Computed example of a mutant assay.
Amino acid sequence: MSAGTVWGVGLGPGDPDLMSLRAARLLQEARHVAFFRKPGRMGHARKIADGLLTGAAVEFAMEYPVTTEIPVTDPAYNRVLSDFYAHCADHLATLALAGEDVVVLCEGDPFFYGSFMHLHNRLKTRVPVQVVPAITGMSAAWTATDMPITWGDDVLTVLPATLPEDELVARITDADAVVVMKIGTNMPKLRRALARTGRGPEAWLVRYASMAQQQATPFATAGDGPVPYFTIALIHGQGRRP
């Protein structure tokens, strides 16, 4: 029996209309579907796919054992997540080795800060794995500001807000255009870093890019409290143009 394929399918930033034709086709044909979620939640990727999956699809919800409950610097964090990804990969490999194709639903693009990367790393030497790329959340975010993120020879720098403040300052200072992700509770640190660089007035904050509740506002108008998971900060490049 030929092994099936595990598909990491990027669904885009949130609006189902921004999904690729290939992604939509795979969802409509899927017999087995897997997706990540927090316990007790439907899961954002599953919400995006709602309406495209057939009622016959067998669903496998992969529930994170931890998200923010343990600091990422705690050795237990990596240990718990490693065991979790290994268990999920084993389940998907078993299905593929039995000849079944499996569609793994992925928010944004599977290879850009996505959980699927950890499954891909564990599965690629065991069963066939293919990835369907997608529009990223940051692309939807700068589109929401109605301004290009880069001009001419601008260099785009993508930063996680989890970096130490001094490193954020150094990288923002040296950058032309900037995207900051993984903000969450790091909002006060990011505000301080932007103030230290003098680039705070240039920055924008976009919540829920491409979704019904989308908000794009100058960073200066945002408070210091935690922001939703789907929040991205931007500084637009001002490079060469005709």
Rank of each mutant, 00 (worst) to 15 (best):
L234V: 01
N121F: 15
A45L: 12
L53G: 06
W204P: 02
N186Q: 15
M187T: 06
R122D: 00
A193Q: 06
P148N: 14
W142A: 14
A175S: 13
L21P: 01
P133R: 12
P65T: 06
S139E: 04
K38R: 01
A96C: 09
K182G: 07
F84E: 03
H44R: 04
G223N: 08
A170R: 13
V180D: 03
G10Y: 05
E107D: 02
K38P: 14
D153S: 14
G237I: 11
K124I: 08
D146H: 14
M187S: 13
T143D: 12
A141G: 13
A57H: 10
K124H: 15
D154Y: 06
A203D: 11
V179E: 02
T231M: 01
R25V: 01
P39R: 08
R171K: 10
Q130G: 03
A76D: 07
P160E: 10
A233P: 06
D176L: 07
I232P: 06
E165Y: 13
V127Q: 05
G4I: 00
V102P: 03
T157R: 11
V58I: 15
G152K: 02
D166Q: 13
K47L: 13
L11N: 06
A45M: 10
T67N: 09
F219A: 04
A34C: 12
V131N: 02
G114H: 07
A220D: 12
A203W: 01
R207V: 02
A141Q: 10
P71W: 14
L234A: 03
T143E: 12
V158E: 06
A193V: 03
A177P: 00
R240C: 12
H44K: 05
M1V: 15
L194C: 05
T217H: 09
P110W: 00
H32I: 09
D101P: 03
P16I: 05
L21Q: 11
V103D: 00
A96M: 08
F35N: 02
A203L: 07
W142K: 13
A98N: 09
D166P: 12
R126N: 10
Q213I: 13
V6S: 05
M187E: 13
H91N: 08
E167M: 03
Q213H: 15
G43E: 06
E202D: 15
V9W: 00
P188D: 09
V66Y: 08
K189V: 10
M117Q: 09
V104T: 02
T150S: 09
V6M: 02
A93L: 01
G200V: 01
L159R: 09
T231G: 00
E167C: 03
A89S: 03
T217S: 12
T5N: 04
